[in-house]
Design a protein around this nucleic acid. Structure first.
Lengths: 174, 174
DNA sequence: CAACAAGCGGAGAATCTCTCCGGATGTTAC
DNA sequence: GTAACATCCGGAGAGATTCTCCGCTTGTTG
């Protein structure tokens, strides 16, 4: 990749991060391009869809969560680790409005595919908890993630989101 | 209200119902107005926001659910009635893409305020179940509705949605 | 049936997404 | 260094959409 292309890409992600933090994930792509000092065409060349841009913006969050999953797996028993990780995931979703939606709608075939990484990281925790007999065996990995995403999407306050997650966790236990 | 105004309103709702069934809840309002044989201004006079139109479109669904809540309250024990009603709610959300979102975002102050009716109807079932000691006492009415809405929003298939609801119901029991 | 109020329509302003291609700018081979 | 090439850029503009505004039409009422 040419250096100017890389620089523009970086600028776009930085501008998108700022604008989205301010206006939410439905912010104008035009404005993002302008803020980045770049033409609209450049934006669309680097990020063909809005989702691909959002995914890039949320990359650092997602990777933080992946790391957290590994940490928790080491310092906590399976059941606790899963619960703590879901809570962290929820926290991030509530902070960055749009993260949950982005992860939900993410296509599974894109290249950096952060959403898939997140699923894998969470999946390990779930698998471990299931082997340890802490969570129901008839529940798939994807179930648990979707439940967390749904809670993040529908809850109208952080307090409620946490309560709903705790309810869901009770339901997940054996 | 003048009779022509009423007629136009009816036409708009009919057209919106058809177009939304075909294109989803993000359908063009222009097209809905055109389909109704009415100017765009007329649409916006009757329904200032997209949400208000969607709410009207989903009115019959919502009222069906309110009726169902009353029926279930009579023929089933409290816990079962609530579970069955939530399942019915989920069914409707999965059928009419956009119902869940509409109910979620509905302003609580509008006049026919179907969303509030739905909350009241569901609320009675929840209250009854709580009095009977079937559901946890520390869970509010709104919690349960938001949980169901979240599941409807995030689930990627009807089968998964039902499984998630069953998990949630376990968590809600005392 | 006149006078008034209520409602209508659709042109148009403002905004947004997304495309296209002439021209500018890195990169590479010599 | 520089010529030749591939890559990338910019932003005008097409097309779509939301929403407003106001002159004109149509019901309603006494």
């Amino acid at each position: 990749m040419r250096v100017d292309a890389q620089r523009n890409r970086d600028r776009l992600v930085a501008a998108a991060t700022a604008v989205i933090a301010e206006q939410g994930p439905a912010a104008s792509l035009n404005e993002i391009a302008q803020q980045a000092g770049v033409g609209a065409g450049t934006l669309y060349r680097h990020f063909p869809t809005r989702e691909s841009l959002l995914l890039e913006v949320f990359t650092s969050r997602i990777e933080t969560l992946c790391v957290r999953a590994r940490e928790l797996a080491q310092i906590r028993p399976p059941g606790d680790a899963l619960a703590a990780w879901l809570e962290a995931f929820l926290q991030h979703c509530l902070t960055d409005r749009g993260l949950a939606e982005t992860v939900m709608k993410a296509p599974s075939g894109s290249d950096p595919d952060c959403a898939t990484k997140l699923r894998t990281a969470g999946g390990r925790l779930v698998a471990r908890a299931r082997e340890a007999g802490t969570v129901r065996a008839d529940v798939e990995v994807e179930d648990i993630l979707q439940l967390a995403i749904g809670i993040a999407l529908a809850a109208d306050s952080p307090a409620r989101a946490e309560r709903l997650l705790s309810v869901a966790l009770v339901g997940l236990r054996t």
